[in-house]
Amino acid sequence: MTTLILGLLIFLGIHSLRIFANDWRNRQQARLGELPWKGLYSLASIIGFVLIVWGFGLARQHPVLLYVPPLALRHLNALFTLAAFVLVAAAYVPRNHLKAKFGHPMLLGVKVWAFGHLLATGMLRDVVLFGAFLLWAVVLFIVSRRRDRGTGTVYPAGTLTGDVLAVVIGVAAWAAFAFWLHLWLIGVSPMA
């Protein structure tokens, strides 16, 4: 569990600099330059992610059951995850209504994904992993929306084309992950 927690601290910590140390982050970016800063940021993110994956695998070897969710919540999680994939796609597809309305649909997607997984799983490792991501996404969403209001940030208006693209890309990515990649990468079939 220690490796998982260390990975979460590194990965979510580096992704929380705008929350807790935005001035320091800006100074370092100015001092190092944009590309070196992005390189260090990416390296720290990759190290954190590898530790999360490794730590989660280690935690699977020592399961600690906290609660047993009803089977229906496992199926409901498939819908939560579908919505999460569409929200994440909306973060990258230009001019869609989700981005125009919420500004940060990726963070909403992480919240929906983490919440759905907390409903569907009951092991300590799951609560640590998904609970950490849920807490991080909630806090960062609030801070990001507050920053947007403070700076007067307005996102481009959504279009039907942007909406359709976000949904099609999100559903396609979700289907690939749900029916093939999740079992291959994580070792669990969410559709079983």
Score class of each variant (00 low, 15 high):
101 K>D: 06
44 A>H: 02
71 L>Y: 12
78 A>Q: 13
64 V>I: 15
83 A>C: 15
88 V>G: 10
46 I>N: 04
97 H>Y: 07
89 A>S: 15
98 L>G: 04
80 F>T: 01
40 L>F: 05
52 I>L: 03
101 K>N: 07
53 V>P: 05
94 P>L: 08
101 K>C: 08
48 G>I: 07
50 V>T: 06
78 A>W: 11
41 Y>D: 03
41 Y>P: 03
96 N>S: 04
69 P>K: 09
46 I>M: 08
70 P>T: 04
101 K>E: 06
45 S>E: 07
91 A>L: 06
47 I>P: 10
34 E>Y: 01
50 V>F: 09
63 P>K: 13
57 G>M: 04
99 K>G: 02
56 F>I: 02
49 F>L: 11
62 H>E: 15
39 G>K: 01
93 V>G: 09
81 T>E: 12
58 L>D: 13
35 L>E: 01
62 H>L: 13
87 L>R: 07
86 V>S: 08
66 L>Q: 04
95 R>C: 08
38 K>R: 03
78 A>Y: 12
63 P>H: 14
61 Q>K: 12
100 A>K: 07
50 V>D: 05
79 L>F: 13
99 K>H: 02
74 R>K: 14
67 Y>I: 04
62 H>V: 14
91 A>I: 07
93 V>K: 07
69 P>I: 05
56 F>T: 02
53 V>E: 07
85 F>W: 11
90 A>K: 09
34 E>A: 00
66 L>W: 11
74 R>W: 14
41 Y>N: 02
91 A>T: 12
99 K>C: 01
88 V>S: 10
40 L>H: 03
91 A>N: 12
68 V>F: 08
64 V>W: 15
90 A>L: 09
42 S>F: 05
97 H>V: 05
54 W>N: 10
72 A>N: 12
93 V>T: 10
100 A>V: 03
75 H>I: 12
90 A>T: 11
40 L>E: 00
53 V>C: 08
75 H>R: 12
79 L>M: 10
39 G>F: 01
43 L>Q: 00
70 P>R: 03
37 W>E: 02
91 A>R: 12
56 F>C: 02
91 A>Q: 13
71 L>V: 15
92 Y>F: 14
62 H>R: 14
39 G>N: 00
47 I>L: 14
89 A>N: 11
84 A>N: 04
70 P>E: 08
90 A>I: 05
62 H>M: 13
55 G>K: 03
49 F>P: 06
45 S>A: 10
98 L>K: 07
49 F>T: 09
38 K>M: 00
41 Y>I: 01
68 V>M: 13
46 I>C: 06
76 L>H: 05
97 H>W: 12
71 L>H: 15
82 L>Y: 01
54 W>G: 01
63 P>F: 12
40 L>G: 09
98 L>P: 08
79 L>S: 07
37 W>T: 00
91 A>V: 05
83 A>I: 07
49 F>Q: 06
39 G>W: 00
90 A>C: 11
97 H>K: 08
56 F>S: 01
81 T>F: 05
87 L>D: 09
77 N>Q: 12
73 L>R: 03
77 N>D: 13
75 H>W: 14
64 V>R: 11
85 F>H: 10
40 L>I: 05
59 A>F: 02
98 L>A: 14
75 H>E: 14
